[in-house]
């Protein structure tokens, strides 16, 4: 298995992402090599990188693209996006009509399937 593939699999193993500062230690490679592979994986759209802090030091949190895309699908009920996104109503979720409509979409999807 190539090192790129091995790195991607290691990142995929961490569901919530892995810090770059921990990744190279886990893979037992040097940080410079790790950085080059990660850059290549980002260019290939296989991994995303977010600024993060680990043990007080600035680093990057790496997540595999498959994981993140799949996980955000839950914000959709069919083709309707979560009504809470960008919502400015100071509502109570217990009584919110927009949220009720969205949940009814979920119910309809269940019925259809």
């Amino acid at each position: 298995m190539e090192l790129d593939e091995l790195t991607l699999n290691t990142i995929r193993k961490h569901k919530d992402g892995v810090f770059q500062s921990e990744l190279w230690k886990e893979m037992e490679i040097d940080s410079r090599k790790c950085s080059r592979i990660v850059t290549k994986l980002i260019t290939d759209n296989l991994v995303i990188r977010e600024s993060a802090v680990s043990n007080g030091a600035r680093t990057y949190l790496l997540k595999s693209v498959d994981d993140t895309k799949a996980s955000y699908d839950d914000l959709l009920a069919g083709d309707v996006f979560s009504p809470c996104a960008g919502c400015r109503d100071a509502c109570q979720p217990e009584l919110c009509d927009k949220l009720s409509d969205w949940i009814l979409h979920l119910v309809n999807l269940e019925d259809e399937s």
Binding site: I48, E50, K63, T68, S71, Y72, D74, L75, S82, C84, A85, P93, C96, L99
Partner: peptide, 14 residues
Amino acid sequence: DPQLAKEKKKLTKN
């Protein structure tokens, strides 16, 4: 992606 993660957290709570 971080913004979507925030939205997901908010939706889960609600």
